[in-house]
Nucleic acid binder design. Sequence first.
DNA 1: ATAAACCCGACTAAAATAGTCAAGTATCAT
DNA 2: ATGATACTTGACTATTTTAGTCGGGTTTAT
Lengths: 141, 141
Amino acid sequence: MKLTTKGRYAVMALVDLARFDNVNPVSLRDISLRQGISLDYLEQIFLKLRKKEIVQSIRGTQGGYVLKKKAHEIKLTNIFEAVDEKIKTVQCKKESKRGCNGKPTKCLTHDLWDELENHINSFFKEKSLEDLVKNNNEKRI
Amino acid sequence: MKLTTKGRYAVMALVDLARFDNVNPVSLRDISLRQGISLDYLEQIFLKLRKKEIVQSIRGTQGGYVLKKKAHEIKLTNIFEAVDEKIKTVQCKKESKRGCNGKPTKCLTHDLWDELENHINSFFKEKSLEDLVKNNNEKRI
DNA sequence: ATAAACCCGACTAAAATAGTCAAGTATCAT
DNA sequence: ATGATACTTGACTATTTTAGTCGGGTTTAT
């Protein structure tokens, strides 16, 4: 079980963005240089973030991105959802009629994975971008 | 972020095993049929479980596997570790000197991923095989 | 005008996953 | 004894996912 770079980079880039956001739009080029993430890849990620209205773009020279919502309103959950990073412990939820493993009942451990998903998601739902920025500022990184 | 089938199958198979264990050794063939998991694949998985002393094998006709420890002593953490299912949120922990992203500092979100790992692992450390079996019996599946 | 920046779809190499396959060895029931 | 059952082990492979790259746009400040 691991987190993909898409999810990680999205969070890293947004934390970076959130720290400079108050002044001017931040260009992906700057984020790319500061965070060491490929520019092309960042563009893919921000396309998704924009579509989910987490960031807003400003085109042209001196353009870039700004947050579209307040940092405390943006939860990790929203970010991951935007870039298709989702918790998938089990694939047996689609068909409501028949259970997993093709049998009429749920698989032996079905409830366990549900529980696990909830456990992880509760973490993501609590943490906001603001929390992360504050945490970093306290440490004066 | 998703769980691999190796981890899921290992837990499913062990829950199955734990329910019949008290009587006779359980053959992989039976588990394979009941849980709908390929026999060859199960063999791979049980090889690892045996090496980590979670199960014990009994060869020959009427052979099979039995738990090597009490069900309440086997935590999810042990199972996942045995089959190499580990939580990997970030790869930036190896080099202690230099941080992630090649820079001398830790990446902006380093502590976050640490926290997430701990959060998930705490779940795995608590849950035992016994918990899972009990849970299923209550529901008379 | 032109450079800086976003926009967007298509493509791809590499790694991980989810197995399969083949060739054993041990043990029990008869 | 012998055959059937079941574990043992390593090698192999198709598929999927990941982690990007690439190329060609469009918009806008200066």
